[in-house]
Design a protein around this nucleic acid. Structure first.
Lengths: 190, 190
DNA sequence: TCTTGCTAGCTAACAGCGTTAGCCTTAGAG
DNA sequence: CTCTAAGGCTAACGCTGTTAGCTAGCAAGA
């Protein structure tokens, strides 16, 4: 009964969520399935395969959340909403996010998943790939620095997010809505 | 003869640079010093101490480079220059940069080092801490995504850097130098 | 019906990791 | 001359991922 590979990944995910990356051990996975570690290798080539599967899972969840948020926004500016969703995903699944953000085993990832996760952001900035990459880097940086407690304790992270989103939004719209000064004033009041 | 702790850190750094983080092994460090691994514990409490020292070293090098760049710029806008230096540091010392960007053992870091590395950036954006953090996140994100090969092969990273710097510079100057559209035009031509 | 072969488990083991316990040699101080 | 402490050493422990080789059960073919 049951699809062993899927069970293995599910067990790994549970371990990851309770105990962090170092709790994801071949022996611990096997324990959870009531078998011994070497038996796992009848279903998987190595531990990297488990990690790749977790990576894909994380990416898929993120893509789902971003697409849902994108669909749900009316006329409001997309960038702050997507940023909020992005951050929420990371804070709610910190270990999964870190896995997702590892060197990335492209060849063992479902075809097109990476692009799917990226598209909402690209659309939000009007299709400019340079800008999309810059925004992605900003969001990833904010999240990873927060997860790693690299910001000084008590730093106003919401303010930093606001500053970044405002700056990028202004660049995206090409200045149609006013000068940087008014944008900055608007950011303060939000 | 010689300061064993310093020798240990130096050996660790050499190992890190040739073989990456997983080459930094207590046994490998000891080998390089002509002693056995357990003897290291006469000089250090554990491996985390070595990593903390490497982290401090990386942070210090980065701070030096940023400060030097800051001193060397005439009237030109600081952000792109600092960004370039930041990126160069990361690409020239990829493993060290990754170590530097780990959860960070604050208490075992030299007093004020973290602030020293951050200050050039804060000054470059005119003292706004929110903006400084956003820019830092952007730079860190760009670098870590590049190191992890997360950008699609062939992506124009220089363009992404330019987009980010331009957007943040516009936000920083408060729109005194014109609309987003002109800024974007300027970015293309640089 | 008997045999064959595959699936999926098992135990034992290996190499490498960080780390601890305990021994021994050497150098310097009283 | 003795005592102490520093800094080496070996042996070992528990952990990791992983391999080799054995075996119970089951399904298909002769």
């Amino acid at each position: 009964m049951g699809d062993r590979p899927a069970q293995i990944v599910a067990a790994a995910r549970e371990l990851l969520e309770c105990g962090g990356p170092e709790a994801v051990t071949m022996r611990a996975i096997a324990d959870r399935l009531g078998i011994r570690a070497p038996s796992l290798y009848k279903h998987l080539p190595d531990k990297a395969a488990v990690e790749a599967a977790l990576q894909a899972e994380g990416l898929a969840v993120l893509a789902d959340m971003l697409e849902e948020a994108e669909a749900g926004l009316g006329g409001e500016p997309p960038l702050p909403v997507l940023a909020e969703v992005f951050r929420r995903f990371a804070l709610e699944n910190p270990h999964l996010y870190r896995i997702t953000g590892r060197p990335l085993a492209r060849e063992s990832l479902p075809e097109g998943l990476e692009a799917r996760a990226a598209m909402p952001l690209v659309r939000a900035v009007g299709g400019d790939p340079d800008l999309a990459r810059a925004v992605w880097a900003f969001a990833h940086g904010m999240v990873i620095l927060e997860l790693d407690s690299r910001f000084p304790p008590g730093a106003d992270l919401a303010g930093a997010w606001r500053a970044g989103c405002t700056a990028f939004a202004a660049y995206a719209v090409g200045g149609a809505s006013g000068s940087g000064a008014t944008l900055r004033a608007r950011a303060q009041s939000t």
